[in-house]
Simulated assay, not measured.
Amino acid sequence: MVALSFIPGVADKGTDLAWPTSQRSFGPLAALLVLGHGLPLLMRTRAPTLCLAIVSAAFFAYQCLGYRPTAATIALYIALYSVGLYQVRRRQRTVVAWTAGYAALLGGLTALGAPESPTEGVEFFALPAGCWLVGTLARTRLREQERRQRESMEAARREEREHIARELHDVVTHHVTAIVMQADAALYVPPDNRAEIEEGLTAIGGTGRRALGDLRAMLGVLSPRHDAEPAPRAPAAGLFTDLVAQTRLAGQPVELVQDGPERMMDDMVALAAYRVVQEALTNALKHAPGRKTVVHLTWSVAGRLTVDVTTDGPGGAPARGPAGPPPAAVPSGRGLAGLRRRVLLAGGELTTRQEDGGGFVLHACFPTEADAS
């Protein structure tokens, strides 16, 4: 703005409220007022109110002194726009104060004998008012964008927290439940049966080590380092057998049935299918200890993997007998809710149903790589 005020052909293209015919010659005071127009714009984002006050004072003085028009007067409109955009507090007071100052300017120009009528000055007020209004609208739009961005970030954080909670639930709940059930089962082993006691303790140690391994892998993902373990990948198909064997060591009678040739699965699908079996066996350990559970994996010709986990109802004879450990409390449903979301993200479907005899069936269906292609 300052530079434009001294460039021939552009310098006199500005606002003139009162002296279109007789104008005072441009001098040092006029140059100082030109600097008062332009330099405050450097702080228009950090101190918009102070910027407007200095620019307005220079503008009002320049108009009252009757100097020739100057391009620096455009700075007033920029300052008004900046106030509408950046000012946070006392916005209405600023508008009232500036309007009062502009009214005083019109009154002063009239008292000085300016040839322009006050009506034209009132009509001119629409231009600075419009600049402030445009800045206010831009501020409203900017704040709305920031609000949407904050909501989007919060939704992403919430989704990530839910994802971590699901992973912790799947890993910790299964392993800890197996350890608890294995330790409870050891209480019913006769003291002189050392071989069975050692077998139970070995199972507890193996389950604990698997839990630690899974937790280290998860922590490596949450806080990656160069020496951290690689991110956990989807379990291999053989781990279904290991999962069933681990549950059997906890005293739960589990049968694994596989139909059809195994097909290649996406990592997400394989991990989701593994979590389905893991969650179902965990629930069987907690809420139906000693009742037979059947894990049925079916690879169809159409290229879909179906997982059915069926747990017998109270009518089945408990494997531990009446002296076995009591069933756990009724589940809260967190595991199944997170599992349903995981299956859905993998492109599958998950349903559950209660059998007439009190048994429970968990059914999941997933696409394989051949089906996805």
Rank of each mutant, 00 (worst) to 15 (best):
T241H: 15
E229P: 03
V269D: 01
R263V: 13
A237Y: 11
P235I: 00
G238L: 10
A250S: 13
T247W: 08
P230F: 03
E229Q: 07
A237S: 07
M268V: 04
M265E: 07
E229K: 02
A272R: 03
L243D: 00
A237H: 11
A280P: 12
G260S: 05
P232D: 07
T247D: 05
E262C: 10
V276W: 07
D259E: 11
D227R: 03
M265F: 06
E255N: 09
A237K: 10
A270Q: 14
E255V: 09
L281Q: 15
V257I: 11
E229C: 01
Q278V: 10
Y274V: 00
E279C: 14
A237T: 07
A280C: 14
A272G: 10
G238E: 09
V257T: 04
Q246Y: 08
P253C: 02
E229M: 04
E262L: 14
L256E: 03
Q258W: 05
H226T: 04
G260Q: 13
P235A: 06
L281N: 14
R233H: 04
P232V: 07
E279V: 12
H226C: 01
T247K: 10
M265A: 13
E229I: 00
M264H: 09
D242Q: 07
V269N: 04
R248F: 00
L271H: 08
M264F: 05
Q252Y: 05
R248C: 01
D267C: 01
Q258V: 12
P261Y: 02
D266L: 15
A273C: 12
A272Y: 03
E229N: 01
D259K: 15
A231F: 05
L256R: 14
A280W: 10
T247G: 10
T241S: 14
G251C: 04
R275F: 15
D266N: 15
Q246L: 14
Q258F: 01
L249V: 07
V269H: 02
L243T: 00
R248V: 02
A231T: 10
R225K: 08
E262A: 15
V276I: 12
P253F: 03
D266V: 07
L243S: 03
L249Q: 13
V244P: 02
R248M: 03
P261D: 13
L271Q: 06
R233M: 09
L281G: 11
V257E: 04
V244N: 12
E279G: 10
Q252H: 09
L256C: 08
P253L: 02
A250P: 07
Q246V: 08
R275V: 13
P261W: 05
A270M: 15
L243N: 01
V277Q: 13
F240K: 01
M265T: 04
V254A: 14
A273M: 11
R248T: 00
A270G: 14
Q258Y: 02
D259M: 11
D266Q: 13
L239C: 03
E255W: 01
Y274C: 13
R233F: 03
A236C: 06
A250C: 14
V269P: 00
